[in-house]
Design a protein around this nucleic acid. Sequence first.
DNA 1: ACCACTCCCCGCCAAT
DNA 2: CCATTGGCGGGGAGTG
Length: 343
Amino acid sequence: MTVTALGSRTAPPHRVVVLALDSVVAFELGLPHRFFAANSIDPAWTGASAYTPSRPPAYEVLTVTVDDGPVTTSAAYQVIPTHPHTVLSTADTIVVPGMVDRYAAGDGTLPADLAALLATARPGVRWVSICTGAFVLAAAGLLDGRDCTTHWRHAGKLAAAFPAARVNPDVLYICDGPICTSAGSAAGLDLCLHLIRQDYGEHIANIVARRMVMPPHRAGGQAQFVQTPVRACESEMLAPLLDQIIGDLSVEHTVESMAQRASMSGRTFARRFRDEVGTTPHVWLTQQRVRHARHLLESGDDPVETVAQRAGFGTAAMLRHHFARVVGTSPVDYRRTFRGSAG
DNA sequence: ACCACTCCCCGCCAAT
DNA sequence: CCATTGGCGGGGAGTG
């Protein structure tokens, strides 16, 4: 939830180090590079926008292995790192992608060389795991007392092997302080985009999403994929209504009013909503309001009170309350940060 | 920080 | 018989 990485705008590039362990999932290994690579958020293609950063946002992405040697991947090739493992100690963010079966058993221990390498990380570094990468963070003790997640197929094993970790199998990703864990492969996309949103704001994150040809935000959890993935077409049912609501956030919405517009009883609407969207109507609505508020703060000059009204928060106090919980900062600070000194 | 109040959410169960 | 719906109520979170 912290936005400490914001300093990277005026400091050297935010250094992301991806740790490739044996039998790493190739897709998840490449994913952070695609998202964080400096040229991915080159301001040259941000278009004609109000965003005029004092300095181009940038990440530097390096990949290491424990012993600097090649590792096998889930695909029919090996990875040979071009940087030594010692750069891990200089990372601002460390990413541990998932591995095929290797750690899914979760015996709770790490090889000595891996444990020693992880111990070289700077204090305050941001940890990121994708899928079964969470088992590595857990074995390093990083998930003790933290909210975390992993692929739904392995959530039970993770919780059993590491009782001190609070495993939530329903969400796409969770950031508990500097510890960010995500569910199965595709949820890693959502988490990386979330981190870019935290580091560089809604506008840049949306540009990256557009560039990646992915939705800027998936509000649902992984629960929606666990039970009946066949329901894909049926899950379109609520989409038109939700789009309408997003387009008209300034008015008050209740579960009952939304249910009426969907021609359902409140109970059925709430149930269908959870099945299809993965969260509750009220939680979803608050998420949408905060997202809209971020957009208004970045792109306009409305006073906070007006932003609150337009986003559907009754008062500025209400906006501040939810903003702090979701974004981790105040609306004014957020605007100052993401409009930059140049704007 | 507190309190009163409202609304939400979800297990339960009867009806369809 | 099973699946889905929707009403009810308690516990709890959100609101002012």
